[in-house]
Amino acid sequence: MKFLSSLLVVLALTFIAWFGVGVLKLYAVFGIGIPYLALIIFAIGFTNRLLQLEQNNPENSPGTKKLTARRLLELLYFRSFFGNIKMKRQESKEESGPSNWFWAGVYIFFGALLIILIRHLRLFLNPVPSFIQGLETIDSFLTIGFPHNVIYITDIVFIVALAVIVLRSIYSSFMKNTSASLSYVPLFLLLGSALSGIIMVYYWRVDIVSVKELGMGLVTFRPFIPTNEGSILFIHIFLVSSLLVYLAMSSRKPMYQWSTSENEANIG
């Protein structure tokens, strides 16, 4: 039941945002202060992590060219999720099967996340660039399923992928043995961010013009505080901010070091 403590952390964060805005009315803190702070922490923390990537063993380094190639493969292709070895050298098919499906899932997961992030730029850019408008239109063309609203395809895909990841890590013995007790925090933060965002579209609707005014206020440094919107907007912002801070400060090693041989030359 390791995930329970992580779930409690995220529920506590949700409660803090609800209490801060719904009861204490700290709109400026949760709408302006925290997003700025989170972005600054994220920028510093992530830069720091990029610098950590450089720390490889010079005696057994494969050389910059090979290292760059490996990192590009990892970034664009998620090589480490593909078993990190070429298919032809895989000895048993059983081994490669499930990890290939997982690899495809990872691609879909990050793809959906990327599209969702790009879609959000419509709230931070005025006028909305045509490619973001186009992406929005393509992503929301389905209306079947929810009888009274459009569905964002990426929202559905993202939630399903996230659910699979959470269930997989709860049930698979590998993750059970290796995961620390709070390692579900980023997953639940993502889930909370996505759900609070979806709720705003389908159930507790907010005035999108006020939301964009808040967003534009942040990027133009001319803050605007929407005081008549529901707490759900600020819960969404707070969970996303928490995720940014987590990504900047978590003690996890960078992705490339998940495979120990990543920064070293091939032996033999």
Partner: peptide, 15 residues
Amino acid sequence: LISPFLASLGKANVP
């Protein structure tokens, strides 16, 4: 990361 800030440089926040 700061591209939205750069794109809005000098712009007013007019709803």
